[in-house]
Simulated scan of single mutants.
Amino acid sequence: MNILVIDDDPAVRKFITTILKKENHTVFEADNGKTGLQLLQEQHDIPVVITDIVMPEKEGIETIMEMRSQYPAIKILAISGGGKVGPENYLVLADALGAHTTLKKPFSGPELLLSLKLLQ
Protein backbone atom coordinates (compact mmCIF):
# COMPACT_ATOMS: atom_id res chain seq x y z
CA MET A 1 0.00 0.00 0.00
CA ASN A 2 1.16 3.55 -0.70
CA ILE A 3 1.36 5.73 2.40
CA LEU A 4 2.23 9.42 2.71
CA VAL A 5 4.07 10.43 5.90
CA ILE A 6 3.99 14.14 6.75
CA ASP A 7 6.18 15.25 9.66
CA ASP A 8 8.65 18.08 10.05
CA ASP A 9 11.00 15.99 12.21
CA PRO A 10 13.36 13.95 9.97
CA ALA A 11 13.99 11.41 12.76
CA VAL A 12 10.27 10.74 13.18
CA ARG A 13 9.79 10.40 9.41
CA LYS A 14 12.71 7.95 9.24
CA PHE A 15 11.33 5.90 12.16
CA ILE A 16 7.87 5.66 10.58
CA THR A 17 9.24 5.01 7.09
CA THR A 18 11.51 2.21 8.32
CA ILE A 19 8.61 0.45 10.06
CA LEU A 20 6.29 0.81 7.06
CA LYS A 21 8.87 -0.39 4.54
CA LYS A 22 9.50 -3.50 6.65
CA GLU A 23 5.79 -4.23 6.16
CA ASN A 24 6.25 -3.81 2.37
CA HIS A 25 4.50 -0.46 2.08
CA THR A 26 5.63 2.19 -0.38
CA VAL A 27 6.28 5.41 1.52
CA PHE A 28 6.18 9.00 0.30
CA GLU A 29 7.57 11.66 2.64
CA ALA A 30 6.82 15.35 3.18
CA ASP A 31 8.17 17.76 5.79
CA ASN A 32 4.99 19.87 6.07
CA GLY A 33 1.36 19.95 5.00
CA LYS A 34 2.01 22.13 1.96
CA THR A 35 4.50 19.64 0.51
CA GLY A 36 2.23 16.75 1.49
CA LEU A 37 -0.75 18.19 -0.37
CA GLN A 38 1.46 18.76 -3.44
CA LEU A 39 2.48 15.09 -3.33
CA LEU A 40 -1.17 14.03 -3.18
CA GLN A 41 -1.83 16.03 -6.36
CA GLU A 42 1.03 14.24 -8.12
CA GLN A 43 0.39 10.72 -6.74
CA HIS A 44 -3.24 9.69 -7.20
CA ASP A 45 -2.89 6.27 -5.59
CA ILE A 46 -2.20 7.14 -1.93
CA PRO A 47 -5.01 5.75 0.23
CA VAL A 48 -3.45 6.51 3.64
CA VAL A 49 -1.79 9.61 5.12
CA ILE A 50 0.02 9.78 8.45
CA THR A 51 0.37 13.43 9.45
CA ASP A 52 1.86 15.30 12.35
CA ILE A 53 -0.15 18.20 13.74
CA VAL A 54 2.40 20.81 14.82
CA MET A 55 4.50 21.75 11.74
CA PRO A 56 5.79 24.87 10.00
CA GLU A 57 4.28 26.34 6.80
CA LYS A 58 1.05 24.33 6.85
CA GLU A 59 0.23 22.58 10.10
CA GLY A 60 -1.63 19.31 10.42
CA ILE A 61 -5.11 20.58 11.32
CA GLU A 62 -5.27 22.73 8.19
CA THR A 63 -3.80 19.85 6.15
CA ILE A 64 -6.44 17.43 7.46
CA MET A 65 -9.23 19.87 6.63
CA GLU A 66 -7.94 20.28 3.06
CA MET A 67 -7.50 16.53 2.60
CA ARG A 68 -11.05 15.88 3.82
CA SER A 69 -12.32 18.42 1.29
CA GLN A 70 -10.16 17.47 -1.71
CA TYR A 71 -9.57 13.75 -1.09
CA PRO A 72 -12.48 12.40 0.96
CA ALA A 73 -11.55 8.74 0.39
CA ILE A 74 -8.09 9.07 1.96
CA LYS A 75 -7.72 7.58 5.44
CA ILE A 76 -5.87 9.83 7.89
CA LEU A 77 -3.83 8.89 10.95
CA ALA A 78 -2.99 12.05 12.95
CA ILE A 79 0.06 11.95 15.21
CA SER A 80 1.24 14.54 17.73
CA GLY A 81 3.67 15.00 20.55
CA GLY A 82 1.83 18.15 21.47
CA GLY A 83 3.28 21.54 21.95
CA LYS A 84 2.19 24.21 24.37
CA VAL A 85 -1.20 22.62 25.00
CA GLY A 86 -0.27 18.93 24.97
CA PRO A 87 -0.91 16.23 22.37
CA GLU A 88 -4.35 15.23 23.61
CA ASN A 89 -5.92 18.58 22.70
CA TYR A 90 -4.45 18.54 19.19
CA LEU A 91 -5.49 14.94 18.61
CA VAL A 92 -9.07 15.55 19.80
CA LEU A 93 -9.29 18.45 17.36
CA ALA A 94 -7.76 16.35 14.55
CA ASP A 95 -10.33 13.63 15.23
CA ALA A 96 -13.20 16.13 15.16
CA LEU A 97 -12.00 17.58 11.85
CA GLY A 98 -11.70 14.33 9.98
CA ALA A 99 -8.77 12.18 11.08
CA HIS A 100 -9.85 8.54 11.15
CA THR A 101 -7.61 7.67 14.08
CA THR A 102 -4.96 9.36 16.22
CA LEU A 103 -1.72 8.36 17.91
CA LYS A 104 0.19 10.21 20.64
CA LYS A 105 3.97 10.57 20.29
CA PRO A 106 6.16 8.90 21.28
CA PHE A 107 4.79 5.61 19.99
CA SER A 108 6.27 2.20 19.25
CA GLY A 109 6.39 0.35 15.96
CA PRO A 110 3.66 -2.10 17.03
CA GLU A 111 1.43 0.82 18.13
CA LEU A 112 1.89 2.45 14.72
CA LEU A 113 1.04 -0.76 12.88
CA LEU A 114 -2.03 -1.34 15.05
CA SER A 115 -3.26 2.19 14.33
CA LEU A 116 -2.66 1.60 10.63
CA LYS A 117 -4.72 -1.60 10.74
CA LEU A 118 -7.62 0.37 12.22
CA LEU A 119 -7.71 2.38 8.98
CA GLN A 120 -8.17 -0.66 6.73
Rank of each mutant, 00 (worst) to 15 (best):
V54G: 01
I6N: 03
V12L: 06
L114D: 15
S69L: 15
L4M: 09
V49S: 07
E29W: 04
D95S: 13
E62I: 08
T35G: 03
A73T: 13
A99C: 05
S69Q: 15
G33V: 04
H25Y: 15
P87N: 11
G86V: 07
K21E: 15
I50K: 05
F107Y: 13
T26V: 14
P110K: 13
E29V: 06
D45W: 00
L116R: 12
G98N: 10
Q43N: 14
D95Y: 04
L97T: 07
S115W: 03
L77H: 10
H44Q: 14
D7P: 03
T51N: 01
V85D: 00
A11H: 08
K21N: 11
H25A: 10
Q41A: 10
K22H: 12
T102K: 09
I46Y: 05
M65D: 11
H25F: 15
L103C: 12
G36Y: 01
L118Y: 12
G83F: 02
T51W: 04
K22L: 14
L97D: 11
T101M: 03
P106Y: 10
Q70L: 13
L114K: 15
D7K: 01
E88L: 14
G36H: 00
K58F: 02
G98I: 06
H44S: 14
P72G: 06
K58I: 12
